[in-house]
């Protein structure tokens, strides 16, 4: 992955921050829609290279959590720190430019463009060429990193296909490629495995496990198998609150969790 760094925070700021700070630090984050609390008083701390799974039933607030962290909509209360920097008030693009990435559960791809163009757009978005009036040349660095990402997510065969013609599984892979554009420091994966076939699922796990080890992420996942294979720590959410945190083994053995979540799966 070609490191295409971006303005926004200076290098020294970043280096200073990365040394000590956590990748993500949420304190008292709540999100209300009218009177409805989709998230209430959430505290989460994730270390820079940590891989965390977020589990929970529908409506537990997992996607809302992502939306608050990535800035799709602002949280009602609380503070969010990204590598030490307070990003609570930042618009989404400023957060992305600082190295945060996310994928979407619903497909938000550009269906009229090709696979390569979608990834290229993602690469441009975190580069300085966002406003470039010049078409990429043959040896364009951004185009090269886009081509590279096509390979990372195993989409070589579909490189020049229009996204509208891709299979569902391929669209999920493309979604991941777009989150890997530029120099991500931390990624939020929103149910990347949902709706995939077993083969596609193992391909996905392979991609996630193969990510550079310094790259931390949070993954929302319904499928315990996927979650436990890629994550080293687990956060359980329930009704917009953090319910349990621990290692995969602890969570699996926790009787409360089993009653609430795993038990439901078996029965």
């Amino acid at each position: 992955m070609n490191a295409v760094l971006d303005a926004g925070s200076t290098i020294s700021e970043r280096l200073g921050a990365t040394g000590t700070a956590n990748a993500l630090e949420l304190k008292g984050v709540s999100k209300y829609f009218g009177a409805l609390a989709a998230l209430s008083d959430v505290d989460i701390t994730v270390r820079p290279s940590e891989r965390r799974a977020v589990l929970g039933s529908n409506g537990a607030g997992k996607t809302t959590l992502f939306n608050c962290v990535a800035g799709d909509f602002p949280s009602t209360t609380g503070t969010i720190r990204f590598f030490g920097e307070d990003i609570t008030q930042f618009p989404p693009h400023e957060r992305i430019r600082r190295g945060l990435r996310r994928t979407y559960q619903i497909s938000l791809l550009f269906t009229g463009l090709t696979v390569l163009d979608n990834i290229f757009l993602a690469c441009v978005g975190v580069s300085r060429s966002r406003f470039s009036f010049l078409q990429p040349g043959r040896d364009d660095a951004l185009m090269a990193s886009a081509e590279n990402l096509v390979r990372v997510v195993h989409l070589e065969d579909a490189r020049d296909e229009q996204v509208a013609t891709l299979s569902y599984g391929q669209q999920r892979q493309l979604e991941i490629a777009m989150a890997l554009a530029g120099a991500p420091r931390f990624i939020l994966f929103d149910e990347p495995a949902a709706g995939l076939s077993p083969t596609e699922r193992s391909e996905l796990i392979e991609i996630l496990v193969g990510l550079p080890t310094h790259m931390g992420f949070i993954i929302i996942e319904h499928d315990m198998d996927v979650a436990l294979r890629v994550a080293e720590s687990v956060t359980m959410m329930h009704n917009g609150r953090i319910f349990k945190e621990g290692s995969p083994a602890e969570i699996e053995d926790d009787p409360e969790v089993q009653a609430l979540y795993l038990g439901g799966d078996d029965g």
């Binding site: 989404p92 009229g112 978005g125």
Partner: peptide, 29 residues
């Protein structure tokens, strides 16, 4: 015609189709 395929033009078309996604790719919509 040229700009429509340069980063600026492509991004503009992206903004038209899906501003939220463009924002999540680092673009100031």
């Amino acid at each position: 015609l040229y700009i429509s395929r340069a980063p600026f033009g492509l991004a503009l078309q992206g903004v038209r189709d899906n501003p939220r996604r463009m924002s999540a790719l680092g673009y100031n919509v």
